Computed example of a mutant assay.
Amino acid sequence: MPWKLNLSNRKGVQAEKRALLFLKQQGLTLLHTNFACKTGEVDLIMLDQSTLVFIEVRFRNRSKYGNAASSINGHKQKKIRNTAAVYLQNHRQHNHRICRFDAISIDNHDANGQNSLEWIKSAF
Results as ranks from 00 to 15, higher is better:
residue 37 C to A: 09
residue 72 I to K: 12
residue 19 A to I: 01
residue 120 I to P: 00
residue 34 N to M: 01
residue 106 I to P: 04
residue 123 A to L: 09
residue 46 M to Y: 03
residue 70 S to A: 12
residue 86 V to K: 11
residue 91 H to L: 02
residue 61 N to A: 13
residue 26 Q to Y: 06
residue 112 N to E: 10
residue 45 I to G: 04
residue 115 N to P: 10
residue 75 H to T: 12
residue 101 F to K: 05
residue 59 F to P: 09
residue 55 I to L: 02
residue 25 Q to E: 14
residue 107 D to K: 04
residue 36 A to H: 02
residue 36 A to W: 01
residue 22 F to H: 13
residue 76 K to T: 11
residue 54 F to N: 04
residue 65 Y to L: 11
residue 56 E to Q: 13
residue 58 R to V: 00
residue 57 V to M: 04
residue 94 H to P: 09
residue 122 S to C: 14
residue 123 A to M: 00
residue 38 K to I: 03
residue 102 D to W: 07
residue 123 A to Y: 05
residue 30 L to D: 01
residue 9 N to E: 08
residue 114 Q to Y: 15
residue 14 Q to H: 10
residue 4 K to M: 14
residue 106 I to W: 01
residue 24 K to L: 14
residue 65 Y to D: 12
residue 98 I to S: 11
residue 82 N to H: 13
residue 89 Q to K: 15
residue 103 A to R: 03
residue 42 V to S: 02
residue 108 N to C: 12
residue 44 L to V: 08
residue 114 Q to M: 08
residue 115 N to S: 10
residue 96 H to S: 13
residue 34 N to V: 01
residue 49 Q to R: 15
residue 78 K to D: 08
residue 124 F to L: 06
residue 120 I to Q: 07
residue 87 Y to G: 07
residue 5 L to I: 08
residue 37 C to T: 03
residue 112 N to H: 13
residue 96 H to Y: 07
residue 73 N to C: 03
residue 120 I to D: 05
residue 82 N to I: 11
residue 62 R to H: 05
residue 22 F to D: 00
residue 87 Y to I: 07
residue 8 S to W: 15
residue 97 R to M: 07
residue 97 R to S: 00
residue 9 N to M: 07
residue 26 Q to V: 12
residue 81 R to D: 04
residue 40 G to W: 00
residue 25 Q to T: 15
residue 3 W to G: 10
residue 71 S to N: 15
residue 20 L to G: 08
residue 101 F to G: 04
residue 102 D to N: 06
residue 37 C to E: 04
residue 83 T to L: 01
residue 74 G to M: 10
residue 49 Q to S: 13
residue 11 K to M: 11
residue 7 L to C: 08
residue 104 I to Q: 04
residue 112 N to V: 02
residue 68 A to D: 01
residue 62 R to I: 02
residue 66 G to Y: 06
residue 91 H to T: 07
residue 104 I to S: 01
residue 86 V to H: 01
residue 119 W to S: 03
residue 57 V to A: 05
residue 41 E to Y: 06
residue 90 N to T: 12
residue 16 E to Y: 02
